[in-house]
Amino acid sequence: MSSEYAVKLDGVWKKYSTTEFFHRSVREEITGLLSRKKDEILTKDEFWALRDINLEFKKGDVVGLYGANGAGKTTIFKIISSITYPTKGSVTVNGTVAPLIEVGAGFHPDLTGRENIYVNGTIIGMEIREIKERMGNIIAFSELEGFIDMPVKKYSSGMYLRLGFAVAVNSSAGILLFDEILSVSDVAFQQKCIAKIKDLKREDRTIVMVSHNLNLLRETADTIYLIKDGTAVSF
């Protein structure tokens, strides 16, 4: 596997339904085993969240995705991290993905910051041993030394974000997905994160970020794509 791309999306289409009636879907899963139904046809209440997305991210790329709410940015993330699967087309990923679609995924309010580092770290694919080794770095990056043994239910949203981000950037994942996560933090921490992103780029890691803040993307990203109505165009 010496290909240089980290993520490749090939003619990816994704269909979603607007209705709340999921009753049909489990039956579809079962009947789908027997007959291959046609995916291309939209039935009533369905729409294409992504239409024919072709993207290739190389190792060491910092890519920005820019677009209005509901344009399909998060759907692209979900497909890259195999949270969901494309209706049509294929996705190839080279390396482990640490998605940060939401900061602090799996944080439990009753557990302390330190305990939650273990939960969140293993969720984004770190080993327990790795987390132990990097505990010092993670805590230092988050600047939460004084609060690390406090239950995170007492944290502010900014503290939550710092802890989550600190875990993610200290993981060894080859591909990092940041969904709008820098927008909540203060300017000083934002600058620190931007510096860290540049460090990660030097380590040949791929970073894909979503933001509404075009200036922030211009500052960090090599390429920016505009996502509009489920299609991607270079920006």
């Binding site: 439990h108 009753d110 557990l111 305990e115 273990y118 939960v119 293993t122 969720i123 694919g125 770190m126 080993e127 327990i128």
Partner: peptide
Amino acid sequence: QLFIVLVWREFAVRYRY
């Protein structure tokens, strides 16, 4: 690794407080 942590979390959270 994640499995171990999830089991630990389930057990720890249940009997905490």
